[in-house]
Deep mutational scan, measured.
Amino acid sequence: PEDEKKAKEALKRANGDEDKAKEILRKLGVDPDRAEELLRRLR
């Protein structure tokens, strides 16, 4: 869904750096736990 698209985009923008991607997602208003879960799934 929408969050998943955001997560993929964030990872791309962060050049695969998960911590940076998490930060980006947090700024986009995605719940930190949700962000973590999404990134884990994309790994």
Rank of each mutant, 00 (worst) to 15 (best):
D33W: 09
L42C: 03
E36S: 06
R13G: 07
A14R: 01
G16M: 05
E18Q: 09
P32N: 10
D33G: 11
A14V: 07
N15A: 09
R43A: 13
R43G: 13
L28V: 06
K27S: 13
A7H: 02
L39E: 02
E18Y: 15
K27V: 10
R26Q: 14
E9G: 07
R34E: 09
D33E: 14
A10K: 01
V30K: 01
D33M: 12
L38D: 02
P32V: 09
K22E: 03
E36P: 00
K5Q: 13
R43M: 14
K12L: 12
R34K: 14
E36H: 04
L39M: 07
K5I: 12
K8C: 08
R26E: 14
L42M: 08
R40M: 08
A10H: 02
E18G: 07
K8S: 08
L38S: 03
A21C: 03
K20Y: 09
R41W: 09
P32E: 13
D19T: 14
D17W: 04
A14F: 05
L39F: 04
D3N: 07
K6T: 11
A21F: 07
K27A: 13
L25H: 00
L11H: 03
L38K: 00
K5L: 13
L38A: 06
K27W: 07
L42Y: 04
I24W: 05
E2T: 12
R26D: 07
K6S: 09
R34N: 07
K8H: 09
K27G: 13
G29K: 02
E37L: 04
R41I: 08
A7I: 09
E23Q: 08
E2D: 13
V30D: 01
R41N: 14
A7Y: 05
R13S: 14
R43S: 13
A21E: 02
P1W: 15
R43K: 12
L38V: 06
K27D: 13
E37M: 04
D17T: 02
K5T: 10
R40P: 04
R26F: 06
A10E: 02
N15V: 05
V30Y: 15
E18T: 10
E36Y: 03
D17R: 06
G29S: 02
A35Q: 02
L11M: 10
P1I: 14
E4S: 08
A10G: 01
A10P: 00
K20Q: 10
R34S: 09
E2P: 10
K20D: 06
K6M: 15
K22L: 14
L42H: 04
K27Q: 14
E9P: 01
L28H: 06
A35Y: 07
R13F: 10
R13T: 13
E23D: 10
K12I: 13
N15R: 11
A10I: 06
L38F: 04
E36G: 04
A7F: 05
E37W: 02
K8V: 12
R41F: 07
R40Y: 03
E37K: 05
L11N: 02
D17E: 05
K6E: 08
R41D: 15
A21H: 00
L38R: 00
G16R: 04
E2N: 11
E4V: 15
K27N: 13
K12D: 11
R13L: 15
E4W: 15
E9V: 07
R43Q: 14
E18F: 15
P1M: 14
R34T: 13
D31L: 09
K6N: 09
E18H: 15
R13M: 15
G16P: 01
D33K: 14
D31Q: 09
A7N: 01
D17Y: 05
K12Y: 08
E23I: 08
L11S: 02
R13W: 12
I24G: 02
G29H: 03
E4D: 08
I24N: 03
R41Q: 15
E9Y: 05
E23K: 07
A7R: 01
V30H: 03
L38T: 03
G16K: 03
A7W: 04
K20E: 10
D31W: 04
D19M: 13
R41S: 12
K22A: 08
R13K: 14
E9M: 05
L28Q: 14
E4H: 10
D19E: 15
E36F: 03
D33I: 11
L25I: 02
A21S: 02
D3F: 09
K27Y: 07
K22R: 12
G29F: 00
R40Q: 14
E4C: 07
L11E: 01
E37T: 04
P32F: 08
L42Q: 04
P1D: 14
G29L: 04
L25N: 00
L42W: 03
L38N: 02
D3T: 06
L42I: 13
E2Y: 09
L39R: 00
E4P: 03
R43E: 13
E2V: 09
G16N: 07
G16H: 05
I24M: 08
K8A: 10
D31K: 08
V30W: 13
R34H: 11
A21V: 04
A10Q: 01
D3V: 08
K8M: 13
K27L: 14
R40V: 10
K12M: 11
D31S: 12
E4A: 09
L39T: 01
L42D: 03
E36T: 05
P32T: 10
P32M: 10
L28D: 08
R26H: 11
K5Y: 11
L25D: 00
L11Y: 05
D3A: 08
K20A: 11
V30E: 03
G16E: 03
G16C: 11
L25E: 00
L11F: 06
K27M: 14
A10R: 01
E2H: 09
K12P: 01
N15W: 09
K12Q: 12
R40K: 14
K6Q: 12
R41Y: 08
R43N: 11
L28I: 08
R13Q: 15
E2M: 10
E23F: 01
A35R: 01
R40E: 15
K6G: 04
E18S: 08
D19W: 09
A10S: 05
E4Q: 09
K22Y: 12
D31V: 05
A14Q: 02
L39Y: 01
L25C: 04
D17K: 05
A7Q: 02
L39V: 08
N15S: 08
R41H: 14
K20G: 07
E9R: 07
E23A: 09
L25P: 00
D17C: 07
V30P: 00
A10N: 01
R26W: 05
K6C: 09
G16Y: 11
I24T: 04
E37N: 05
L28E: 11
E37S: 04
K6P: 03
E2F: 09
R13V: 12
G16V: 01
E18R: 11
L38W: 04
E9N: 08
A21Y: 06
L39P: 00
L39I: 15
R34M: 11
K5R: 13
A35K: 00
R13D: 11
D33F: 10
D31R: 06
I24K: 01
R40D: 15
R41L: 10
K20R: 11
L42P: 02
D33Q: 13
A35C: 07
D33Y: 07
E9K: 06
L39A: 01
E23N: 06
L39D: 02
G29Y: 00
K12C: 09
R41K: 14
A35I: 15
A7P: 01
A14P: 00
E23T: 06
R40L: 10
R26S: 12
P1V: 14
R26P: 01
E36D: 12
E4N: 07
L11G: 01
P1E: 15
D19K: 14
D19Y: 10
A7E: 02
D3Q: 08
N15I: 05
A14D: 01
P32I: 11
A14H: 03
R34W: 15
A35W: 08
E36M: 05
R43W: 03
D3G: 07
K6Y: 12
R34G: 04
D17I: 05
D3H: 06
R43I: 15
D33N: 10
A14I: 02
R34F: 10
R40N: 14
L42N: 03
E23V: 07
K6L: 15
R34Q: 10
R40A: 14
K6H: 11
D19G: 13
G16I: 02
K22T: 06
D17H: 07
L28R: 04
R26Y: 07
K8F: 09
E9H: 08
N15D: 11
L38G: 01
E18L: 14
G16F: 09
V30R: 00
K20L: 13
L39H: 00
P32H: 09
K12S: 10
K8E: 09
G29P: 00
R34Y: 15
L38M: 10
L42T: 04
R40T: 09
K6D: 07
L38E: 03
K27P: 01
P1A: 14
K6R: 11
G16W: 09
K8G: 06
L28Y: 05
N15F: 13
E36L: 06
K5P: 06
E36R: 04
P1N: 13
E36C: 06
